[in-house]
Design a binder for these strands. Structure first.
Lengths: 369, 369
DNA sequence: GTGAAAGCGCTAACAG
DNA sequence: CTGTTAGCGCTTTCAC
């Protein structure tokens, strides 16, 4: 150990050690190599876990790295290896509900954990406005920066997505894309989930089941509406346009949608997100409607609020965290094994029955009766 | 344009164009240079906005770049310039309330927008567990990856923070650090904000003002508690330990804290976060206490929920988005002008009066009387 | 199993 | 104003 320190003094970076004693010198591979008495490439081999190094040399190199606190330079490594070990997460402007709905934070968390598990660095691109789009797009397309891209699916008019997909870097779309031709994506089974939710209401005996949809144009919203319609059709029910209201995945839009729905006297509502369900329930309560006696609710997402609010929300649980982890693994696969042909993964969801749908009360009365 | 395409064919990357017609060739500076008929460094100059280029050449180069869709290689640029144009945002494990509280998502958004404004790329490091810490730390310290670091202040036992600060890359702590020696930070004026909140309750005539604190050990929690105590002391009130309950910035902790507080019969509560205030109000309602008649509430943060819930919350508004933008600018300053001596920025907050504190009702009755 | 040599694609003095 | 010349610190054949 003493010998090591002395040798350090003879390195090119010595003066740094001398002048600013508490700051680590900016060591290079070459420095470590000299220290150990081997060639640069041997040190590189042990760092990269190559098999062709004798155990004895390997140990000495590792010891030197430990002692000196050496870290390889990321830029140099990227340049030489043509791999940055970095992936990007792109959230288009159209998902501006970004941080009002807990969905995206949780998704981001899942992706971040996925990156941790795989020794990847995550870059976050949040598009705030049209200007941002112009500035972000070249940053993302710059070669040598990102090994792969996770792109959140948004509105059809998001040109950004189209541009990025064509940018040569392996991409995976989060959510069903508007134009799914030739691009891989990962999604949850929104159609079946919404169908399950609606059928649950149907099974409970509700007659006038309304729905509050997400932004028209987004594939999530479309798929959940399809599920709702399918359930009704399967049950032989007719569709009533007065029972379909459009929201945009915000609380206030759920509130407004519910107010527009009330005249049509729904006895149950399937909302395409918990946040909207929450707004809708607020509107119902304000109108002196009892939940679930006068009007029952089922949401979508299973955000924390769903189980915390006074009237606990029956909802569809999305495996958001798992979704993020899976997305990272899928992208890695795409990077390593090529993006063609395009593939996709559809993940299952789960119905969580709580109070707002009235199942428990109905169950009780049935037991009582 | 046609001439350009023909010339392109003679470049080293031509075969790529030939085989995979729809994929852009991996152009280099050299390719653009040959195309225009100038030297590589001239192209570099126009890309980097150097003044020393004749307008005519500049225009020709820019045209070629536009036509070819050339983007400089990020790794090569970082390596040569010793600047990556990337900063990191590190969220230690101790802020695991990360995505249950809208605070952090909003902060992240502010920082992301700050990066957009300054042509910076943002890397996100979310520490999920102790293992992550070991894996993330070397990634962050790798030279050549990050120009600077934004580190969220957390618990005193977060060794990660200490390690990062010493890692040689310019760092800025978000929130008052536990050991502020020699490191720059940016924070909101928690002490004064909490004092303002408490004084507001005092001025309204409440006699038994309780507080729900954040995690013991975090500086935010400590500062807000100090503000509460200061306000009481300034008003000549004695401190009652039974009126201080500890939470941890989660909804459920606010709920539990309130339940433990109820026997002490507080007539007002200052909660150190809106989320906790929300949990506390839930507990109060459950105990058949009216808000604000039986017990008044003031929160902290001004999250969207505060103005959306049935009983609108009086709270302290933090300029979270602005805070994030400011943090990025501060960090840039630190990167460009050095980190010593350490400096800090303290941002002001604002009291937002709504229904939960009873000010309006008291105002009405005063007006009436 | 290890060393030598050749770049990865760019920036940045330095001449001229 | 532009070209030349060195690298930045690493990976990766290729010999031996």
């Amino acid at each position: 150990m003493r010998a090591l320190s002395l040798q350090l003094l003879s390195l090119s970076n010595y003066f740094l050690v001398g002048r600013i004693p508490f700051i680590m010198p900016e060591l290079t591979l070459e420095d470590i190599a000299k220290l150990v008495g081997v060639h640069r490439s041997t040190v590189s081999r042990v760092i990269n876990g190559s098999a062709n190094v004798s155990p004895e040399v390997r140990e000495r190199v590792q010891e030197a790295i430990r002692q000196t606190g050496y870290h390889p330079n990321a830029a140099a490594r990227s340049l030489a290896s043509q791999r940055s070990q970095m992936i990007g997460l792109v959230l288009p402007h159209s998902v501006s509900s970004f941080f009002t709905d807990p969905y995206f934070p949780q998704l981001t968390q899942g992706i971040a954990y996925g990156c941790n598990n795989n020794d990847l660095t995550l870059s976050l691109f949040l598009v705030g406005n049209k200007q941002d789009e112009e500035k972000i797009s070249p940053r993302i397309s710059r070669r040598g920066l990102l090994d792969g891209l996770l792109v959140q699916s948004g509105q059809p008019d998001d040109m950004l997505i189209q541009r990025l997909i064509k940018s040569n870097v392996p991409s995976l779309i989060l959510g069903r894309p508007n134009e799914p031709d030739g691009v891989s994506f990962i999604d949850v089974d929104n159609v079946n989930a919404a169908k399950t939710a609606t059928r649950h209401l149907l099974n409970l005996g509700y007659q006038r089941i309304a729905t509050i949809t997400g932004n028209k144009g987004s594939t999530v919203a479309a798929d959940r509406l399809t599920g709702y319609k399918n359930a009704l059709a399967d049950a032989g029910r007719s569709m009533d346009a007065a029972l379909i209201a459009e929201g945009n995945f915000t609380e206030i839009s759920g509130y407004n949608a519910m107010r527009s729905l009330i005249p049509a006297k729904p006895d149950a509502v399937f909302a395409a997100s918990d946040i909207m369900a929450s707004g809708a329930m607020r509107a119902a309560l304000e109108a002196n409607l009892r939940i679930p006696e006068d009007v029952a609710f089922v949401g979508f997402d299973d955000i924390p609020l769903a189980s915390l609010s006074k009237i606990q929300l029956t909802t569809i649980r999305q495996p958001i965290l798992k979704f993020g982890l899976k997305a990272v693994e899928f992208l890695i696969d795409l990077i390593e094994n090529g993006t063609t042909p395009a593939r996709n993964i559809i993940m299952a969801t789960e119905l969580v029955v709580r109070d707002s749908c009235g199942a428990k009360k109905i169950g009780e009365s049935q037991t009582a009766g």
